[in-house]
Design a protein around this nucleic acid. Sequence first.
DNA 1: TCCTGCCGTGTAATCGTTTCCATGAAGGGA
DNA 2: TCCCTTCATGGAAACGATTACACGGCAGGA
Lengths: 335, 335
Amino acid sequence: MAGIKEVAAHAGVSVATVSRVLNGSPRVSEDARAKVRAAVEALRYRPNAVARSLRTEATHTLGLVIGDILNPFFAELARAVEDEAREAGYTVVIGNADERPERQDHYVRTLLEQRVDGLLICPTAEVTPLVRDCVAAGGPLVFLDRTLPGLQVPSVRVDGTGAVRELIQHLHGLGHRRIAFISGPDLLSTGRERTRAYVHAMRAAGLEIREEYVEAGDFQAASGQAIAARFLDLPEPPEVIFAGDNLMALGALDEIRARGMRIPGDVALASFDDVAWFVHVDPPITAIAQPAGELGRRAVRTLLERVAGRPVKPVVLPARLMIRRSCGETGRTQR
Amino acid sequence: MAGIKEVAAHAGVSVATVSRVLNGSPRVSEDARAKVRAAVEALRYRPNAVARSLRTEATHTLGLVIGDILNPFFAELARAVEDEAREAGYTVVIGNADERPERQDHYVRTLLEQRVDGLLICPTAEVTPLVRDCVAAGGPLVFLDRTLPGLQVPSVRVDGTGAVRELIQHLHGLGHRRIAFISGPDLLSTGRERTRAYVHAMRAAGLEIREEYVEAGDFQAASGQAIAARFLDLPEPPEVIFAGDNLMALGALDEIRARGMRIPGDVALASFDDVAWFVHVDPPITAIAQPAGELGRRAVRTLLERVAGRPVKPVVLPARLMIRRSCGETGRTQR
DNA sequence: TCCTGCCGTGTAATCGTTTCCATGAAGGGA
DNA sequence: TCCCTTCATGGAAACGATTACACGGCAGGA
């Protein structure tokens, strides 16, 4: 492929002038500019971003390490990150860590070697040495969705406390008392926070928290199904099953359906983390919606601030309760 | 950040030796190898992939331009591409073209400038000059899911003809005669093929194809809803609505629900393109499943063959009919 | 007319690797 | 002892861009 040298020769100027035209420097005559433009066109020249990056020490690339792009929450997050980054002139490289620390490390390592300008990570539970080093080295890092204890890294995340309180009040108002919670892994900050929010909200509503009504899953569908089964097998099964994320809600839904039980007649269902198709099941599922798109956009903006060397503040966005029909009728229903 | 020079100095060897150790060349003494390893560790050296790529003319990066990562079909595709690429030692940069030719061009241009080793594109309808040039220049390009007429580019895609024939037979066997089809845009190869398959299958089953029962949407939910509405408003509405992709099926589902109609009692629903949640709606939706994962993996393998300069054959994978309950009961039901 | 300053342009160093080629040491056979 | 091979190693030239610096020409003021 033609390089800047060929363009220079074709245009009858030096490589410096070609470079200046390409980068829009003002110190170039109209004449030279036109000749270079013509040569670029004629040779179908495409600047080599690799060489440029080597020289300028900037790749205009961001890394994004998420759990799994198949999870609609992460898909929306990734989409928003991509959009915001593109608008700022950046490309995004996505890595699916699958909640596996070694795979997270694989991506972090690769992305660092590729010299991405900044890194967005939804960290897995473990603080790996690599991530610790990266933080210590002051790499432009921002945690997304989750945080990691003891590390001084700016984070952009969602706070569902208020929404969970609203949900419990809503359930309480509907006459439900026995509300079970399929929590997330205790090792994940999101898992811990959601459990805390549930406990506080139950207390605030004056409801009893029974030990057998709280069990931790792994944010995957199978665990949601298994835990829902145990809840329903209890001598006194709960009136409501509240799942800690959309996949576990899906598992619970399957289990309830498999038993031929009616929602919300026999048992009510609610989910932390809303997904598009919750609206389309029968009955539509009441859920706490996380502003995934906004989260992604804010994360990119925060990261770019950090890349520019400006100080950044952590961002916390509120989640929102979407009342539908899976917990009983109230009259007011939302899409 | 420390470079290979510092490592060489620290280890007391030359940069050439360091490079050889890093690349696993056999012509290095154990002694030197150990010293270099120690220096790499001590300095926390990370090879600069940008410099390496400049020198070796290979980035070990693939580009993937898709419609929209939020569409579960593309999400699965992207996930599979990523997995297969990672196993082969490649990173993937994804671009969401949103069916907009100018945005597709933006990504193609950017990825070419980044000097990706290969490019996977789900092309939009238009053949843009950029893509044409790229093909002419013999860039390592593979079309994914869709093809573009008149361009000699290897493609990896799905053939739904057999599955559509099965579906129509299934519907016919259930007693349905009036089967309407929400087709995709005629400009997309997938849209054209699905319509052709529908027409052929109807003829083969000896069913009449009524003009008012075939209307083209744009593969988005809103168009599916609008077209379903028109079908249902017909003096003689169809017994079955067959949607050309998952989003239009979703739109049709909404419209049917909004009218308070029962599925499959009042109208049956089927979809080309299966998604995970079709199983979880009530009733589960009969759909034609595309092997998105396999498609992505084969695409990467094909592309890498092409990158290696070996000749490749186009790949065509068959779709599979998943009979569920949205078209009526048959006894046999699949997940 | 001469000096000063500005402006457009070119030369060459540089970024961090890989890799070709030369070199010198060591080992083995005659 | 001498020569030839083998092998580990180092020096230095690329890769394709950006950019500091220098230089020559021209305009305007003295």
